Amino acid sequence: MTDGDHPRFPLFCPPGAADLDGVRATLDRADAAGDAFGSDLAATLAWVRSVTRPASIAATWELLAGVAARDVAAARMLEPHLDALAILGEAADAGVGPSLDTSGSWGVFAAEAPGVRLEARRDGGTWTLHGTKPWCSLAADLDRALVTAWVADDRRQLFALDLRDPAVSARSGPWHARGLDRVVSAPIDVEGAVVVPIGEPGWYLDHPGFAHGAVGVAACWWGGAIPVREALAEAAAHARADQLARVHLGRVDVALWAARAVLVDTARVFDAGSSASEGLRAHRARAVVADAVEATLAGAAHALGPAPLTVDRSHAQRVADLQVYVRQHHAERDLARIGADIAAGAGAW
């Protein structure tokens, strides 16, 4: 897919926005990679290392959605890299993080799981990590990562970790995924790796950009669903298409159109400056986009039947990738969190 095939560019930015030339150039480099983009891990990560983070949130989401429209796995590789760069930039601006070499490819490992724990210990002025961190996507292939670990007062703190340190061991699994099979998300074991603290305990979860990164993931979901909509449009335009084909297309189009409107408005608010309800706004936006993507996948399954899932490699891979990726939304649990916030008096529209 090229910009010429995608007349909606720009999706989230006002036409003529300063960042758009850079976004377009980055997408052009992705197109130049051809079939290797997303499927060839080494080639895609080399491209990720070359990407410069846009200055605005709208342009960042523009880039993420455009990449996901080309390949969902490539967007899954790029999104945490850009998020890490944004976190480091915000920490530096706030004076809570040292100036670091940000070259290479980055991940963000902040998940927790029962039975495993990563702890940070301080000896004088040196911090080291000890234990196991779950859900570390591409840890065996990335250069560095921002990692949360538990500190003495049983709070989590963020650290910059060199994944090439011999004290870091990346597991190869278990990872039996059919979607995002190229993006292995398995634990790492760490025993004494020296790390650099970023912010004080609790800073990572409370920093303003946390909400921005959360919706960046949703921009990837949205962009990944656009080619599925195009497949529905092509089917509905066929001479033998019936009214049901058009109903499915209409339902999907409306859902994605509404989700795009939410992303545009959310980017506008976030780019304008901090808001007391940014966390709630982020959860609302993610819920709207997740619902739209799930409606798209269901509509495609009903309208197109099994054929594209069995004979169209690109479509089948995209559907499988999206099914795994959108599960970063926690469904009813995230809705319950929104409801709790509203019940507590938060969140004026």
Score class of each variant (00 low, 15 high):
2 T>W: 06
4 G>Y: 06
6 H>M: 11
7 P>L: 08
11 L>W: 11
13 C>T: 09
17 A>Q: 06
23 V>I: 03
26 T>A: 15
26 T>I: 09
29 R>C: 04
29 R>L: 12
41 L>N: 10
45 L>D: 04
47 W>H: 13
47 W>Q: 08
47 W>V: 08
53 R>T: 15
58 A>M: 04
58 A>H: 04
62 E>P: 05
63 L>T: 08
67 V>T: 14
73 A>G: 10
80 P>C: 11
81 H>A: 05
85 L>R: 12
87 I>K: 02
89 G>E: 12
98 P>V: 08
98 P>R: 10
101 D>F: 03
102 T>L: 12
103 S>M: 01
121 R>L: 14
123 D>C: 02
123 D>W: 01
124 G>I: 03
130 H>D: 14
133 K>P: 11
137 S>C: 11
137 S>V: 11
141 D>N: 13
141 D>C: 12
151 V>K: 01
153 D>W: 03
163 L>S: 07
169 S>K: 14
173 G>H: 06
182 R>Y: 02
183 V>M: 15
183 V>G: 00
183 V>D: 05
188 I>P: 01
190 V>N: 01
197 P>F: 05
201 P>T: 09
201 P>K: 08
204 Y>T: 00
205 L>K: 13
206 D>T: 15
210 F>P: 00
211 A>P: 02
212 H>E: 15
217 V>H: 11
219 A>M: 06
221 W>S: 05
223 G>E: 07
227 P>K: 00
240 R>P: 00
243 Q>G: 14
246 R>H: 14
247 V>E: 12
254 V>T: 15
255 A>G: 06
256 L>S: 08
265 D>L: 13
269 V>M: 06
273 G>T: 06
273 G>Y: 05
281 R>Q: 14
283 H>V: 10
293 V>I: 04
294 E>A: 11
297 L>R: 10
297 L>M: 14
298 A>S: 12
302 H>V: 13
305 G>I: 05
308 P>A: 08
312 D>C: 12
313 R>Y: 05
316 A>Q: 11
319 V>G: 03
321 D>W: 10
322 L>A: 12
322 L>D: 09
326 V>D: 07
326 V>R: 15
329 H>D: 14
331 A>G: 15
332 E>C: 04
339 G>R: 11
339 G>W: 02
344 A>K: 09
348 A>T: 12
